[in-house]
Simulated assay, not measured.
Amino acid sequence: MSEPLQEPSQTTLSDQITALSPTILRDFEVALERAGSALLLDDLSRKQVLTHARDILARTAAQVGGHPTPVVQPGLAREIGADRAATNTSPTESLRAANLLFATVVRRVAATVDGPHATDHLILTALTLHEILTHTLRVAADAYVGVLLNRIHRAQIEERRHISRELHDRIGHGIGVAQRQLELSEIYWAADQDRALSRLRAAQHGLTGTLEAVRHAIAGLRLVEPVHGLEKALRLFLDSTATPELIHDIQVNGDESWVPATLIEETFLIVREALRNTVTHAQAQLVMVRIDLAPDQLQATVVDDGQGFDPAAGHRGTGLLSMKERASLLGGSLSLISRVGGGTHIELRLPVEGDTG
């Protein structure tokens, strides 16, 4: 009578993973360095990613050893997700790190375990590690998105405050002045018609300026023909906000029907903010916009010859942050190159997928 198959020694496997942990962590750090991971750009991020990897290995060892633990430490994963958002680090960096850790663990365990149950041990390790990594990435991603949504909410509040200031300072003031001129015209009419007419002309001039301010506000808030009017909308925005001295060239290549209408609108908002910065801060003589549409990708560049700035010194307001967050939430990226006196180059890349109807 043959002997029954023995179950894999999970306790032994747990001990092996624990003993391998220092070597795995060293291999993992080397793999991150070779991949040029953004997670190693500063000491804090390096310490964080290695501490997290050590925690994941400890949990993997515990679970394969038959000592159930939560598959993820929510506090640490949430902190990492929030920090990635705070430093504008793409979520793909975390996914790449998870893949490198998984490959490192599997390679080391495969080279170490032996015996009749070596394959079972390797499969158990891989499945357990995959479960822990999946849950970790999900918790971190939720925290990442939460931070971005909160920032966008704050940016929206700031935009509303900006609109309120514009309405009060420009439109409200202009209407108030025109109303006062009309009142004075009525007062002067009986005794001095020339003076009254002067007040009427002043009121007319004030209302004309106020009407232009209203048109300016509308152009900044609305996307005209959102599905098939990207180029037209951007030209309208520049025509209503830029000085005649600013030369601008806008090119939109490709068919907008390839791209979902919501993505076209988000692209408009991002590019419009870049142009707003050019008009407001750059003191540029030339700005060029090129948008290339394809069934799988949207790419946009905004280049000006303005005074530029030092990105390392920070940026003014929430405009650039809002642009980056919009791009990130859409699964894309936004990069900026600028130097003092050397103009600014902004590049937006967005994946295109889903129904375009």
Rank of each mutant, 00 (worst) to 15 (best):
E273F: 05
W258L: 15
H205R: 05
E231K: 14
Q251K: 09
S240F: 00
A190E: 13
W258V: 11
T278Q: 03
G229F: 11
F237I: 07
L197I: 11
H281K: 09
F268R: 07
G229V: 12
Q251D: 08
L236C: 07
N253T: 13
E245Q: 08
D194L: 10
V214I: 09
L246E: 01
L221A: 15
I250W: 05
L223D: 12
V279L: 01
N253I: 13
H205K: 08
H228G: 11
V252M: 06
L207G: 09
D255G: 11
W258Y: 12
A191S: 15
V279I: 04
L275S: 07
G229M: 13
A190F: 06
V252N: 06
R195K: 14
Q193G: 06
P244N: 00
G254L: 07
I247V: 08
E265V: 12
D255M: 13
H281M: 06
E212H: 10
A203K: 04
T267D: 05
E186N: 12
Y188D: 14
A274E: 07
L238F: 01
A191C: 11
A261S: 15
G254F: 05
R199S: 08
A203N: 05
N253M: 07
L275T: 00
L200G: 01
L211G: 07
H248Y: 14
A196S: 14
E186Q: 15
A274F: 04
D249H: 12
A213M: 01
A203Q: 07
G254R: 08
V224T: 15
L246M: 02
T267Y: 02
Y188W: 14
S240M: 03
A274R: 03
F237H: 09
